[in-house]
Design a protein around this nucleic acid. Structure first.
Lengths: 333, 333
DNA sequence: GTGAAAGCGCTAACAG
DNA sequence: CTGTTAGCGCTTTCAC
């Protein structure tokens, strides 16, 4: 550890120019002989010169760092998002502070303060529920804020997945492979995403669609199937589930009852949580919210704002994508 | 956005002292009348003064930021770790850059370069396997490096969980509740952690213990049970699994065969991956590697090193903890 | 006890 | 075309 860092002064010396010229050469600003510029760049590379970010920041007020706030401790949603943000920004030299704040107001405030103290170029606020706000007010910060997968104030820039489109895709896919009696097993009605998905389901099916609300668990999927498949009833031939865990519970319950998936009943999930979708037997066809893409957009947007470009406030819905595995039968197109 | 930030100059003015005195007052250095110091602090608070990190860093060479490198895209291991690191450091004003580098050398290098450019105070390297190195050489960086849940060079500071102790705890627990024929279903022999866990299992059971190697999947757990419970065999009365997914597959297979868990067979997992351990029926008793604690230690250690204190190189094994749920029967002490 | 002044490493006017 | 100079906001000798 600890070879002393080389300063621009040393580069200038070695290249036989002044510090100012060296700076201009390296930053591709000012005018000078191409030859001079090349020589300076050469020497800088040779010496392994890396400009001091503190000195630069002091002048430019930019840190090339942004903060990602999330209250999703599991990382089910925040990690893909993070990964998208990071991917999009690493090539701009921007790194991402991840702050997991678990609904604790004091902790959130400390994290935000730490970020502001470090002069982050922007903040992305994200959560595990699109309809909950983070426990901290980001509305009058001295840096741009973008909301991703969480609800921001009305005049904010917000990115969410298009749950309506995703749900329509799922239901339409079930119909395209010949399913007629499609039910919807989903989470608590209090979740915004539940409403969006259920509304889209009804939009596709008609108002006599059956929607069963419960928790986001396998146990509920299991239980809902028990309820739907009592004797002396007309059985559904397809189930559109509000998330993958419910879908997995449902499929397990169907198998235990000797009902074949996908031959007798098709099942579609939501989330494409690899770890459950792939372990399900058969592997689950499910809606992917493209969280990485969401993260990428959010990252690029906050960067634009940091660079001073105006970005119109509003909610941007990014498309979901149906990932076809084996729980439905049929074959994609 | 954008109330101009107040500089120490303005604090000094308002307090009727010089910039130098203001600085000393706020930093609790130098000598001056307690009264003066108090007044300056008061005014600073009033004005919402936050020292400029760039200016400070330029002098102190410290950024109060560290980088956490990981190739664990799922976040199964890196998120709890991250959360521990962050928890331990937020109160020191330190924020954490998370860099997910997915085994890509070029990407890793870019991330590391970005971190160094920002003068991070240290780097924690972490992975999804304790026996794999990250695809980037961290050994001669100008900042301290700590390894957590991944293998570092011999002379490095490394934190890992004590898999031996965790496994012994699991097996001893099974014996303490009266189990006699305990088998071990685990992952590929090529994993270091598999060896550690299997060796500990044999250490507790004797060399006639049965160890079945496969993949880290539910499918393998399922399949292994099929193999163990063929007719005309003496059935095991307990299964110690190498991870929670295998355990879940095993439990599902047992249920499908009408073998009662925990009445007839006890099952223990490894990882305490909440999402699978809790969804298993019955909920899984499993070994928790205390990754948050690991992260906390790693964070505090890298911070110490950043502050110049010497830390002896070597591997530190932190204890695992058995989390008792319902898949074994018995009751904890 | 308190303040003036010199710099940390870099960039940007402004001269030459 | 290139170099001199004056800061960015803060800390830290060193005089007073």
């Amino acid at each position: 550890m600890s070879l002393r860092r080389v300063r621009i002064y040393e580069v200038a010396q070695a290249a036989g120019v002044s510090v100012a010229t060296a700076s201009k050469a390296l930053r591709d600003t000012g005018r000078m002989q191409d030859q001079t510029r090349a020589r300076v760049k050469d020497v800088a590379a040779q010496l392994g010169f890396r400009p001091n970010a503190f000195a630069r920041g002091l002048i430019s007020k930019r840190s090339f760092a942004i903060g990602l706030l999330t209250n999703d401790t599991y990382g089910r949603f925040s990690l893909p998002l993070m990964s998208g943000v990071s991917d999009a920004l690493v090539d701009h030299g921007v790194s991402v502070f991840l702050c997991t704040i678990e609904d604790d107001e004091g902790l959130s405030q400390r994290h935000v303060d730490a970020l502001l103290d470090k002069h982050v170029d922007g903040i992305i606020a994200s959560g595990k529920r699109v309809d909950r706000r983070l426990p901290v007010d980001l509305s009058k910060l001295p840096v741009p804020v973008v909301y991703a997968f969480t609800q921001g104030p009305d005049d904010s820039v917000t990115f969410v997945s298009d749950d309506r489109q995703g749900s329509l895709d799922a239901v339409n896919w079930l119909r395209s492979i010949g399913r007629q009696r499609i039910v919807h097993i989903t989470g608590p009605a209090s979740f915004q995403s539940v409403t969006w998905r259920a509304d889209a389901y009804r939009e596709a099916i008609g108002n006599d669609g059956i929607v069963l609300h419960g928790t986001w668990t396998e146990a509920w999927g299991h239980q809902a199937v028990d309820r739907l498949f009592c004797p002396n009833q007309i059985f559904p031939d397809a189930i559109f589930c509000g998330n993958d865990q419910i879908a997995r519970g449902a499929i397990d319950a169907l198998r235990e009852r000797g009902i074949a998936v996908p031959e007798q009943v098709s099942v579609v999930g939501f989330d494409n949580w690899e770890i459950v979708a792939a372990a399900t037997r058969p592997p689950l066809t499910t809606v992917d919210m493209n969280l990485r893409a969401l993260g990428r957009e959010a990252g690029l947007t906050v960067l634009e704002m940091a660079e001073g470009r105006e970005v119109a406030p509003g909610i941007r819905r990014l498309p979901c994508e149906l990932v076809v595995r084996n729980s439905c039968g049929g074959a994609r197109d």
